[in-house]
């Protein structure tokens, strides 16, 4: 019995990242929880027409979940709506899907990251009202990489260990950081831009553009150059 109670989790704050239909009436739910990280849950019977959880297991709404079980896929026992966050709309919604895909692809299962969870929650709230969605996304990407142990080096030369020269050019190497440019790197950045990103100073409009390229380089590297579906869909939608 004692072992059984240890396997049971109650009132865990979590978000749904994605769902898949499972058998006739159930749902497989990938969640991101504060204390247990990302994990899959089986929600039995929730696709029945009168299931009270039917409309609840949706991405971007704060939930309080309870689950039990021992295997890789646990069984959802309880799900309560916590609220306080209106649903995302428009482009912000697409940004939300992008964040969820990043978590699904980069965050290993059952690896708790409370700071990342809090930042994810703050990101969803910011996306609701943000004038500049790009900035919110960059901050999320940066926190995600940092929490996964791939923090950005922006203020020192990875080759010499010396400070960044604002006037010099650097190539950004995903596994090391900025090295003096030999003109052959995939991304060439001016020292000034690196320092601006480090200080989160986006007064120069070119900075955010370069920041985006830098994050794309790093994320693609972590994804082994496998494409992100949400990024492709977003691009196709912009072409409509």
């Amino acid at each position: 019995m004692e072992q059984g109670s240890r396997r049971r989790v109650e009132n865990e704050r979590a978000y749904v990242l994605h769902t898949w239909p499972y058998s006739e009436t159930s749902l497989l739910v990938e969640i991101f929880s504060r204390g247990y990280g990302r994990l899959p849950l089986l929600a039995k019977g929730v696709r029945r027409p009168r299931s009270s959880l039917r409309g609840l297991l949706m991405a971007f709404q704060p939930l309080s979940l309870g689950w039990s079980g021992r295997g890789e896929v646990r069984t959802l026992n309880r799900c309560e709506w916590v609220g306080g966050l209106p649903l995302l709309k428009g482009d912000a919604l697409l940004c939300g899907f992008y964040c969820n895909e990043l978590l699904m692809r980069l965050l290993p299962r059952e690896d708790p990251h409370e700071a990342l969870f809090d930042h994810y929650e703050a990101t969803l709230a910011q996306l609701q009202h943000a004038e500049d969605l790009e900035r919110v996304l960059r901050a999320f990407e940066r926190t995600l990489l940092k929490e996964l142990g791939y923090g950005l080096t922006l203020d020192r030369d990875a080759e010499t260990g010396g400070p960044i020269d604002p006037e010099a050019f650097y190539d950004y190497e995903p596994d090391r950081g900025p090295v003096p440019s030999r003109g052959e790197g995939r991304l060439r950045l001016r020292g000034r831009t690196l320092l601006a990103i480090a200080n989160e100073d986006y007064s120069d409009p070119g900075t955010l553009q370069q920041y985006k390229q830098l994050m794309r380089l790093l994320i693609n590297h972590r994804l082994d150059q496998q494409p992100l579906h949400s990024r492709n869909v977003y691009r196709e939608l912009q072409q409509l």
Binding site: Y98, E101, H229, S230, V233
Partner: peptide, 19 residues
């Protein structure tokens, strides 16, 4: 429906036909 995480975009649901 559009489902970015499953890679279902505007082409897959025939938005050009709707247009």
């Amino acid at each position: 429906r559009l489902s970015p995480l499953d890679g279902i975009g505007p082409k897959e649901i025939g938005l050009d036909a709707l247009q």
